[in-house]
Amino acid sequence: MDALEPVSAARCFGGTQHVFRHQSRATGTPMRFAAFVPPQAAAGPVPVLWFLAGLTCTEENFTVKAGAQRVAAELGLMLVAPDTSPRGEGVPDDPDGAYDFGLGAGFYLDATEAPWSTHYRMESYVVEELSELVAAALPAHPARQGIMGHSMGGHGALTLALRHPDRYRSVSAFAPIASPMRCPWGEKALSGYLGPDRAAWRGHDACALIEDGARLPALLVDQGTADGFLETQLRPELLEAACAAAGIPLTLRRQAGYDHSYFFIASFVEDHLRWHAATLAT
């Protein structure tokens, strides 16, 4: 297990907001992540809530913009926010420099196509390597873990929870890419990382996973009605239909007038933290 290198630490609501760096075996690159450790961790391991950020983001966006630490400190939740892709020398990027593929756009899967397959292994990184690293280095309860995310990270939270039901006991999302097989962002990413065979894409599409038998005990999703990506990229109605057909309890809250920004996330993150805490309490 590679050692964590502290980047920063700041006292926050009685706990500590950390940023760490380490050399990743999964991606073959240096990686950074943020971890808020609540004050309750002084007495023993605490539940962990993972946050997966969206396109163009790093571990910093949620940590700095969402305002989640106050409620996490009250509830005794550890918040862990990984980066959104590998970075560094030799890591390929979108050849056209677009924001929706390559750096900052790992889509939380393990790529199978060259040149992406060498470094773009974000599913293995988040689910396996970083989980093990956090459990070894921080007072994290290994059996009380939930996951949430925003946009591309919402897609990641849904698919990782569906693909690894024994890992995550609770899942929620803000404006997730509900079905990447059926939107421009997702079609570009899945074809680039996984190749042209759409059958291979189904394992990384929340709606397709549900259609193919994967299940969640319950799901909370918030979606702003003024989100500029709503109709073309996010398509929550597809997730709504898939959950209804599968009998998955979905709370889909369409929030009038809210857009895709962190102002939207900050407005409702307390609800998500309390929802996860209720499941992770025991």
Rank of each mutant, 00 (worst) to 15 (best):
R70S: 13
A53H: 05
Q145M: 09
E129A: 05
G104M: 11
G97Y: 05
Q69I: 11
G97T: 03
F51M: 01
Y120H: 12
V37K: 12
V19W: 14
E128C: 10
A136N: 14
A26H: 05
G102I: 05
Y120V: 07
A43F: 15
L160C: 02
E128L: 15
A157V: 02
L49R: 09
G67C: 06
N61Q: 13
A43D: 13
A114L: 11
Y99P: 15
G156R: 03
F62S: 11
G156W: 04
A34H: 03
T112V: 12
P38V: 03
L49F: 11
V71G: 14
F62A: 10
F51Y: 09
V46L: 07
T56G: 10
Q69L: 12
T159S: 05
G153Q: 01
F107L: 15
H18G: 15
G76E: 04
F101T: 08
R25V: 09
E113K: 01
P86Y: 07
G102E: 10
A157H: 01
V46W: 03
R163G: 00
G44D: 05
G88D: 10
A98H: 10
G149Q: 09
A105P: 02
A161Q: 01
A68I: 11
G104K: 00
A161S: 07
L75C: 07
M122R: 04
K65C: 06
G76L: 03
T29G: 00
A157T: 01
A105I: 03
A137H: 06
E128D: 12
V80D: 00
A157W: 01
L55V: 15
T63S: 13
G54Q: 02
G149P: 03
G153R: 00
G106W: 02
H22S: 14
R21F: 09
M148Y: 12
E129P: 02
A105G: 02
Y99H: 10
F20R: 00
S24F: 01
